[in-house]
Design a protein around this nucleic acid. Structure first.
Length: 560
RNA sequence: AGGGGCGUCGACAAGUGGCUUAAGUCGCCAGGUUUUGAUCCUGGUAUUCGCAGGUUCGAAUCCUGCCGCCCCUGCCA
């Protein structure tokens, strides 16, 4: 039944509530739902909601439905339904049933008439401006609408004519008759139905009146017998209204709404508006740009679903508004990728190294483990060593700094898994730039193990110049330079990190990667985790850097 | 101004009157191992729980007052 929760699982007050409800017998089985509005792409914030909604249901042997909250036909919808489903599946969750709030329009309408018949709802014909003015203020009670006391018959007639399409948008609205003086603004006769002569992505032109979120959500939960309706903090003030409907309508079940804090990260933006602006103004390549916090962007970047799930678990669920340090995300990603990414070598900015005593035209093959840490190495791949190899430009310094353990004149280093080489000569071009290193290799140290047991501290990644395969590499970094973009009166667009994307066209990778499929996640040793882009193909490799390895050397502030 | 919610280490977050002179995770610092300056391992990192009083033998946990932050006046969700 319920899986034992991971010891590393962070606390989660919702989990405690559910456990209590199950133990007390209030529920035999729990049912939750994930209710996205199909009007945009899912982002990392939604990932938390998905993990909570689906994860808790799974943990307790319950069920979780996917429900598209499509009560507003004005906001283009159908195109997002598939991407949302895809993202949820990618994250690793399955829904029990898929529903659309629009499937319940008939029932919702019937309930609206019930409310009218019971004298608990009325058709208001004030203009939006009048309604706003009469709603009062936080400090002052609202004023009853002049239409508040229309008869049941008149209300029914008006409401049916609204449904029949007799009126223009905005001419009338159905409101609940609750309390215009309530300190909770949501209870000052909230709108239940509005006239919207728009084409709906599923119901087409069947309706011209649509229920509001408040009138639709809880009742939809009830129809699906949801036991725990989990949502974010901003709906807290709506809970009394949610419950008012449960109390005043003949609903088949009475779900409980529980609110928790949404997920926020430093160094990124999460609002739909800002994300859209980034895309529409071309600051990024699209919704799935690897720098975007959208699930499609993160997927393309190479983040694994398990990493995201682990992150959500570690972050916990509480009611505190908080900004999670992005390093927590980065850690979760490295943690999972370290465990699951096979190792390869690739040189980003090549520097030629000629092994002067290596036989001309000869190729020496070595076997290297895919997972060096594992006992059996997790499989192997073969890598060729030739007279000319490529190493990273950053791994050579003509004048080494202290503690330098890479290449420098006279220094011996290891070419990982293959050889020990010593730098003998530095060749420069007319501009004084280093273009080539002349080195010798130790034929007695094949594989990198010296016959005399001498210690060679530095180990470099490398690629055979003859076998190395060209690749276009995209290095991604944080999209913003400040912790909370757009805070205060700053413009978040001016805080975009100008170096969030670096494209390297001269990279060369080891031949074992020639046929790598799009979506493949690997580690380039000593550099970081990478993912073959969705557009990558043999002959035109395109590789996205997901995240660098931790680099305490760079952090120590080494020069150059 | 009214209502709702929240304030524990740099960031998350346990703890709900004594076993807490406050878990864990990330980060950071210091060591060790290492053919990735990665991983891994070890140790350090809040005498203090928004502030001020009070109750109590005893409080982060109870009471009172204050301060701070977030949400609510869509025919958005």
């Amino acid at each position: 039944m319920s899986e034992p929760k991971d010891e590393s699982a962070a606390p989660n007050f919702v989990r405690d509530i559910i456990a209590d409800d199950l133990q007390s017998g209030k529920h035999q089985q729990i049912v939750t739902r994930f209710p996205p509005e199909p009007n945009g792409y899912l982002h990392i914030g939604h990932a938390k909601a998905i993990c909570v909604d689906f994860g808790l249901a799974k943990e307790f042997g319950g069920r979780c439905n996917l429900r598209f909250d499509d009560t507003n036909p004005v906001k283009e919808e159908t195109e997002f339904v598939e991407s949302i489903k895809e993202d949820i599946k990618w994250l690793g969750f399955e829904w029990n049933e898929v529903h659309f709030t629009s499937d319940y329009f008939e029932q919702l309408y019937a309930w609206a008439e019930d409310l009218i018949s019971a004298g608990k709802a009325y058709v208001d014909s004030q203009s939006p401006e009048e309604m706003k003015a009469n709603r009062g203020d936080f400090g002052t009670p609202g004023t009853n609408s002049p239409h508040r006391n229309r008869s049941v018959e008149e209300n029914l007639d008006l409401f049916r004519r609204m449904k029949g399409g007799e009126f223009d948008n905005g001419a009338h609205v159905l409101r609940a008759k609750i309390d215009m003086a309530s300190p909770n603004m949501n209870l000052r006769d909230p709108s239940l139905y509005r006239i919207l002569k728009a084409h709906h992505h599923r119901t087409g032109d069947t309706w011209c009146i649509y229920p509001t979120y408040d009138f639709a959500h809880g009742q939809s939960d009830a129809i699906e017998h949801i036991t725990h309706s989990l949502c974010t903090l901003e709906f807290e003030a709506h809970r009394p209204l949610y419950e008012w409907f449960m109390d005043n309508l003949e609903v088949p079940a009475t779900p409980r709404q529980i609110e928790f804090a949404r997920l926020n990260f430093t160094y990124t933006v999460m609002s739909k508006r800002k994300l859209r602006q980034l895309v529409e103004e071309g600051h990024v390549g699209g919704w799935d740009d690897p720098r975007m916090p959208t699930l499609s962007g993160m997927r393309r970047r190479g983040f694994s679903p398990a990493a995201l799930r682990n992150l959500c678990e570690r972050v916990g669920v509480s009611k505190r508004n908080s900004f999670i340090d992005i390093s927590l995300l980065e850690h979760a990603v490295r943690d999972d990728l370290n465990e699951h990414s096979p190792r390869y070598m690739g040189v980003m900015k090549p520097l030629e190294v000629v092994l002067e005593n290596f036989p001309e035209g000869h190729t020496e093959w070595f076997e290297a483990p895919q997972f060096p840490g594992r006992e059996d190495g997790g499989g192997i791949r073969r890598i060729p060593l030739t007279k000319t190899v490529l190493v990273e430009q950053d791994d050579f310094l003509e004048v080494p700094v202290k503690k330098w353990r890479r290449l420098a004149p006279g220094m011996e280093v290891r070419l990982r898994y293959a050889a020990l080489i010593t730098c003998k000569e530095v060749v420069k071009n007319g501009a004084g730039e280093v273009v080539r290193l002349i080195c010798t290799w130790d034929p007695e140290a094949k594989g990198g193990n010296p016959a005399d047991g001498r210690k060679v501290k530095g180990t470099l990644h490398w690629v055979s110049a003859e076998h190395g395969i060209p690749a276009s590499v995209q290095n991604y970094d944080r999209l913003f330079t400040v912790e909370s973009p757009g805070s205060g009166d700053t413009n978040f667009l001016e805080q975009i990190n100008p170096d969030s994307l670096e494209t390297l066209e001269g990279a060369r990778v080891e031949p074992a990667l020639a046929e790598a499929a799009a979506g493949t996640r690997i580690q380039f040793e000593r550099l970081g985790y990478y993912c073959f882009d969705q557009d990558s193909k043999p002959g035109a490799l395109r590789i996205n850097r997901t995240i660098t390895l931790r680099d305490t050397w760079a952090k120590a502030g080494k020069p150059g």
